[in-house]
Simulated scan of single mutants.
Amino acid sequence: MTEARGFFVAPVGFRTASSNDYSSITDLHVRVSGEAYAGILPTDYLASVMPDEKAKLWERRLASPVQLEKISITVAEVRADLVGFACFVLDEETQFGSYLHNLYVDRSFQGNRLGPRLLIESISRFSSERREMPVHLLTIRENDQARRLYDRLGGNVIEEKQNVMSRCPEVTFVRYQWPSARMMASNASALCTPLHGANGR
């Protein structure tokens, strides 16, 4: 890896995902989920069930051509390495707005505000109309690291719910919502301000 924790030693590039990213996104999703949910979700689920679930998920989402009217996936790369991705699902639970279904960053890049930068880049690809629509997400209640970020991004908790995962029905999720994607991007930009000028952007 080309990074030392606390700063980037190579420029980060952002682009829209393609079907060629299937393996890299799946691998990153499985690896980071296993780290984030250790001690929260059952060990046998993380080890034996989740990898196949994620492989099928990304096989479906990244089928060629990617259905851009239904999904928006932005990846972050350092040289040839995929180090993070954000996925907005545009046609699911639309009563709450655009659904941020995934925001994942390689462990060695966490703490560098790459998550907020992925949000900024993703939302910049939205139409002007969609930037004014609300954004929402679901996260596990005990996922403290993710929730700290969403709190700092100014998200509002609007509900708690269970039975989101059929294999883990006892897990409780919280739903965060932002009044608009534009506001989420603005709050993310404020978090990134100390890094401007230090990473080539």
Score class of each variant (00 low, 15 high):
F14H: 05
K54F: 12
P134Y: 05
Y99T: 00
C168H: 08
E159G: 04
Q162R: 14
I140H: 00
A80P: 00
A190H: 11
H101K: 11
L103G: 10
V89G: 04
F7S: 12
S98A: 13
P65N: 03
A76M: 09
N143Q: 03
Q162M: 12
S72F: 00
G39C: 01
E53R: 08
S18L: 09
Y150G: 11
H101N: 09
L82F: 03
Y22H: 14
E160T: 13
G84Q: 02
S18Q: 02
I40K: 00
N143L: 04
M165W: 03
V30S: 04
P11N: 07
L57R: 11
N20Q: 15
D144E: 13
S33A: 08
M183P: 01
S180H: 14
G155H: 05
R79P: 03
D52R: 08
N187P: 02
L119K: 01
M183Y: 15
I120S: 05
F88P: 03
A36E: 08
E93D: 13
L149P: 06
R79K: 15
S24A: 13
V171A: 06
Q110T: 08
G197T: 01
S19G: 06
D21C: 10
A190T: 12
S72E: 10
K56S: 13
T94M: 05
Y37H: 11
G154V: 00
E132I: 02
G13I: 07
N102F: 04
V135L: 14
L137F: 10
H136W: 14
P179W: 07
P116T: 01
G84I: 07
V135S: 07
E93R: 12
A4P: 06
G39H: 05
R31K: 12
N143C: 06
S180G: 13
R117P: 01
Y45K: 04
S19K: 01
D21L: 11
W178F: 15
V9C: 11
R60F: 14
P116N: 14
W58Y: 15
V105H: 01
M165P: 03
V78A: 04
A17K: 11
H136C: 10
I25N: 01
V30D: 01
F7M: 08
F85Q: 03
N20W: 15
A63L: 09
R113S: 09
F88K: 00
V9S: 12
N187F: 05
I123W: 05
T94W: 03
V75S: 07
V49I: 14
S24E: 15
D106Q: 04
Q110H: 02
P65K: 14
D144N: 09
G154R: 00
L153N: 07
V164M: 12
P65W: 08
R15S: 13
E53K: 08
V9F: 10
P169A: 02
A55I: 07
R130M: 06
A86W: 03
N187A: 08
K161A: 09
S128F: 12
Y176Q: 07
D151A: 11
V171R: 02
Y104Q: 11
